[in-house]
Design a protein around this nucleic acid. Structure first.
Lengths: 212, 212, 212, 212
DNA sequence: GATGAATGAGTATTCATTCAT
DNA sequence: AATGAATGAATACTCATTCAT
């Protein structure tokens, strides 16, 4: 997207800008983030920004894209490392929360995107949901979960993740946690949420219902 | 909030401003909404605005408060009208989606609030969730749903509602629907979502599991 | 053009801006003239500018329009005051030079207009030329000048006026004249120019040729 | 002017830059012409520009100088080829218009120069006028034209040429002429203009007045 | 000789807010 | 109560110029 650097130095500079933008968008929000603030954070001159990005929106889109790629990567890696299918699912979910806990900017940025870049917003959710859909389809075929409209359920999972993540990460009950500290996911609540989800998807087969 | 009008005329003016603000914030977003645009939409002079509101944030908070009150009212009314507890739950949910479909501004406005007015954002979700919590507690006591951490589940429901609402209302599959048309909630998906939720909450008792 | 003020105060402010713009455009040129400089010269706040003008171009066009109206006014007034037709012509020409001597900005501004506002440029020349054309037609009908394509001749007169005006006003031989001093039109050269023009237009009739 | 290349390759590069600058200045105007655009048009790297020119003004001056040299060359060549003095004069004028028709950039560039490079502007007009002065002096001595202040008349001719040229070349009545097409000088108007000029200069001697 | 990454001063424009009427 | 003229801080973006490679 935007202009691609032609030298190694340029590549470094561009990457520094994206990192700085994530930081600044995350803490100030899109509108209060200014290009100057981003370039200062990145330690480059103002004009340099326009060497690599067409404007504020362009770098915003790129930050969303970048975070999206990384959160999905974290999720698939975690799932892959898990033993069986049901553990994989939990691992993926946990990775999602861990990532957002470490990158609260993700929420803040995404939730801004409605007016800033609707396309980026939709892309972000859709890609993650697609990951869920794949997983659910496989599980369904394996008989691990019941017959159901995986699409609707996948979006529901996305909603659960977003809302609980917001609650845990952004509204960190111990609001007095010093800034910068990574929010801890409350294990008990996470488990409660997972059980709720698993009951909702449990296969029909009597005796092995997730309800117990 | 802000200044209260002393005359009937003043009350009307103030109300016109709130209505205009809902419209403008909803279609333009907080930052692109300007006070001039709001006053023009309201058909009053620019200076008049500051007679009733301390500033842009103040009217934003009021709009959020107003929408929140109305959506909750719609939900409780619908639930009250229902026959039994399980129907009440569905009715409430359906009312939520209907309201958001009729007021897409709600989403757009709320999702902006993260940086504009974090307090208003939290207030909005918390009040709705509290409504869920009350309902769930009663249902739990009646044995209609299982023993569980209703708090966590209530937030999960909030998340499901927000995400599916966004999907149905904002990303209206038939994007060619003429602007202004109220989005139709897809009944099949709504039912699928409700079943997912009900299975997640179904009481343990064998034989009456929501799973079937 | 642009926004019209609704109050007397506004009208005054707007007029001050136009005057300031003439001054600043004239001494700095379009590109080095900044809105701040114009508003400072006018003694109003920066934002005030945008109350009355859509932008830099808009006020430029208005300045051209204004100067054009005034130079034509000066010319017709002078011509009207003259006794006979031949004197009227000279008087008009002289008024043109006097006006440009008093408003050197006219040249500087007009000559910039090629890229800034081609429409304004053309309008300026065309309106003045139209004045010449009217005069020449009347003179031709009265037999004061010969049969000829008055259009072409009128444009030629415009060119002569512009070039000699530029020479006299802008390149004021005594360049050491303190800035702000009004350039003096060299009478001898003016007369030489008028004779050249008059010979070019003189009626065919022998005996009354302007050539003698 | 500026740095002189030391190699044949350098000479070519420099020439390409001047040509590109004529093109870019001509179509975009001084201020909207950027060094990048010039170097892109020339097909060289940005930094290369500063190898041969001190800055934007420097290349502008050079372009003016170059165009000036070429238009005068065209005029003297045409005049030399003509048989007698009166034909030489017409031929020179015609060459002037033809050149400007083929290089409309000339006008556009020159008319910008007022603030960009007043020296270049004056130089341009003065050199051409000097050519006229030489011709007029010779003609006067030969008795082909009357006694008169050739200086003033020469500037008048310059003005006529510039204004009618602008009219013919820039405002090409058939504006629908496809871009890039060379404007055709309207013969009838050209002749009318020449007759006007010739009458203005015609010798006193009765019987051979240009007036007939 | 040639290049293009880096820079930051400069500028048009927007908009929340104040205040005299 | 209502108005709208006035303000200036804030900000995205451009571009001539430098310089290390």
């Amino acid at each position: 997207m935007s202009t691609t650097p032609r030298t190694a130095r340029g590549t470094r500079t561009r990457a520094r800008l994206v990192a700085a933008a994530e930081e600044v968008f995350g803490s100030l929000g899109y509108h209060d983030a200014s290009i100057v603030k981003i370039t200062e954070e990145a330690g480059v001159g103002l004009g340099t920004f326009y060497l690599y990005f067409e404007g504020k929106q362009a770098i915003f889109d790129e930050v969303v894209e970048d975070l999206n790629r990384r959160v999905r990567h974290a999720m698939t890696e975690a799932a892959r490392a898990a033993g069986n299918r049901i553990d994989a699912e939990r691992a993926g979910f946990r990775a999602f929360f861990r990532f957002t806990a470490e990158h609260p900017a993700l929420y803040r940025i995404i939730r801004q995107a409605e007016f800033v870049s609707p396309g980026a917003l939709r892309m972000h959710y859709t890609r993650i949901v697609n990951g869920y859909v794949e997983g659910l389809k496989a599980a369904r075929e394996a008989g691990d979960i019941r017959e159901m409209d995986v699409d609707t359920v996948a979006w529901a999972l996305m909603g659960i993740g977003e809302m609980l993540g917001m609650r845990w990460v952004l509204w960190n009950k111990e609001a007095d946690t010093e800034a910068g500290a990574v929010a801890e996911i409350p294990e008990a609540e996470f488990e409660e949420m997972m059980r709720f989800i698993e009951r909702g998807m449990a296969p029909v087969a009597p005796g092995k219902g997730a309800g117990e």
